[in-house]
């Protein structure tokens, strides 16, 4: 099978930690108020999925699990050239840990249908675990390539380079497979004018849009609610504690001439103690 490929890409909407909006005094995020964005790591996964489509042909389906506003990132994916999107949204998914999330995504993936490749981001900026991809691969009994930096396909065979401690590894396997894409892969290309325009047209016509983006719930995908949300999660966050600025307070030297800032640094730090005699 030399293409076309059926390509899935898993993307998540996360709070924008760069903006101060929606940050509670204790440092936790008020998800209702926080600005939202596409998980930065998933941009690489999206680029990888689109690369396969453009190079070898095929169809890209973006899949996300999250509250209704997550439809925004599916629209964004369409603007970038993704063919269709599925959003799994259900109140019973609240407080899912990675195991429950991977189960729900597994049910979604099998509901959507057959695939050759599934791309995931390396990790999310809110969950920050890098677990969901491999846990999904386990459910689907797939081989996986994590920390993938680059790859090509050769007649249905995936050849990939992945990061390891102290180097890289070249691996290959036959599709279907799940790949988590490292942030050293190519950055997401700019949206095409055509893609953005198409999505604009679609948004004016909800019925037409419904053909491209479908929202599903646990009943539709036939997932067991007992295995989702808080109930299906073997872990909970029992306590959080604010850690002030990491490593203490940074003395900043800013806005002065270099010689002044450097002089002050040498004065205040312990650099002098280590100078060659």
């Amino acid at each position: 099978m030399a293409g076309p490929y059926e390509i899935f890409v898993l993307i998540k909407q996360v709070p924008d930690q760069g903006s101060k909006a929606g940050l509670n005094p204790d440092g936790t995020i008020d998800r209702a108020k926080a600005k939202r964005m596409l998980n930065p790591f998933d941009r690489y996964a999206l680029q990888a999925a689109l690369h396969v489509k453009r190079t070898y042909g095929g169809r890209v389906t973006a899949i996300s699990m999250g509250p209704p506003p997550a439809v925004e990132i599916l629209l964004e994916a369409l603007e970038h050239g993704v063919d269709r999107g599925f959003l799994l949204s259900d109140r019973r998914l609240a407080a899912s840990d990675t195991l429950a999330t991977a189960y729900a995504l597994y049910k979604t993936v099998t509901h959507v249908g057959k695939f050759d490749l599934i791309f995931c981001g390396l990790q999310t900026t809110d969950g920050d675990t890098a677990q969901v991809g491999p846990q999904l691969a386990e459910r689907l009994s797939l081989p996986q390539v994590t920390y993938c930096e680059d790859f090509h396909l050769d007649d249905g065979r995936l050849h990939a380079r992945r990061i390891i401690e102290g180097g890289v590894q070249f691996v290959d396997c036959v599709a279907p497979a799940l790949i988590t894409v490292a942030n050293s892969y190519h950055p997401l290309a700019y949206k095409s004018f055509r893609g953005a325009w198409r999505v604009q047209q679609l948004q004016r016509n909800p019925e037409e849009l419904g053909k491209y983006i479908r929202t599903v719930d646990l009943d539709i995908i036939q997932a067991d609610p007992e295995r989702c949300g808080l109930k299906g999660s073997p872990t909970i966050v029992a306590a959080t504690e604010k850690v002030g600025e990491l490593g203490g307070n940074c003395s900043m030297y800013e806005g002065h001439a270099p010689d002044e800032m450097v002089g002050e640094l040498i004065e205040k730090s312990n650099l002098k103690e280590f100078l060659v005699a």
Binding site: E245, L246, G247, G248, C250, S251, M252, Y253, E254, G255, P258, M261, V262, L265, K268, S269
Partner: peptide
């Protein structure tokens, strides 16, 4: 890096 450095020069 300025979040965990002890001394930081912006320049």
């Amino acid at each position: 890096i300025f979040k965990f450095a002890h001394h930081g020069i912006v320049g």
